[in-house]
Design a protein around this nucleic acid. Structure first.
Length: 238
DNA sequence: AGTATTTGACCCTG
DNA sequence: CAGGGTCAAATACT
């Protein structure tokens, strides 16, 4: 009975942890970020990490269920859903849309009630490494400059390993010790200062009301609430 | 030539 | 039944 819930929770936490690490990495790489923000991000990552441990991945919280050859037939436990709102200064697809990972657009749908269509992205290495991460990007109806980015699932590809690993205490020379050790390329756009394309044109938005979402995004999760608070907090510091 | 994007159709869920 | 998500073929771009 509670197995499904536990599994879902573990999956959610997994996604949270990934995002926390990413956020921490971003903040840590940015020189213009106040120390308080970094501290908060570090605390966030630590807290999430602790939560993950507390949850105990006794279930099969490894990741995706099973990749059947045909269509998905029993998508029971929803994958981790993490919503992020990002505002960009220009309508170009830079900054928040490029979170350091390789995304491939696989679809676009016009959403009822929304002015702008929703784009569907999935990890480029899905066929290569079985990375089941997907994300949806949609412009807010009210603010065309405001993007709603929803992450589904967690990255299992090499890029995520590097992304999460570079922020760990592991020395930069230990890159060859990835858990999965993919023989593929593990290289980035090679940003000297900011590994993440986070130029000075994008900011996390503090205004996080549902009014901007056009009613299309209804993620009823307590985790999201907490995320909202966290992002609000971080945004306030920025 | 290979890869990423676009676009329409199909299928599943609420 | 309507809306939303994914697939797959075609097209565009590098």
């Amino acid at each position: 009975m509670e197995d499904a819930t536990a599994t879902t929770l573990a999956t959610e936490l997994d996604g949270l942890l990934a995002m926390a690490r990413e956020l921490e990495a971003r903040v840590g790489a940015d020189q213009g970020v106040p120390g308080a923000a970094r501290e908060l991000c570090a605390a966030l990552a630590a807290s999430v990490d602790r939560a993950v441990r507390l949850a105990g991945r006794s279930g099969n919280a490894g990741g995706r269920a099973s990749v059947n050859g045909q269509r998905r037939s029993g998508r029971k436990a929803a994958a981790a859903k993490v919503r992020t709102q990002v505002r960009v200064a220009s309508m170009q697809d830079l900054g928040p849309l490029d979170d350091g990972l390789s995304w491939r657009k696989y679809g676009q749908k016009d959403i009822l009630g929304a002015t702008y269509p929703r784009s569907y992205f999935r990890c480029t290495h899905r066929h290569t490494q079985g990375c089941a991460a997907t994300k949806q990007v949609q412009r807010a109806t009210a603010d065309p400059l405001l993007f709603d980015v929803v992450y589904h699932g967690a990255h299992t590809c090499a890029q995520t390993a590097v992304l999460a690993g570079m922020e760990q205490q592991q020395p930069p020379a230990a890159f060859g010790q990835e858990p999965q050790s993919p023989p593929e390329e593990v290289q980035w756009p090679a940003e000297p200062v900011t590994p993440f394309s986070f130029p000075s044109c994008c900011h996390l938005t503090g205004s996080y009301g549902y009014a901007a979402a056009g009613g299309g995004l209804g993620v009823d999760m307590e985790l999201e609430d907490q995320l909202d608070e966290l992002f609000l907090d971080v945004s306030g510091i920025f």
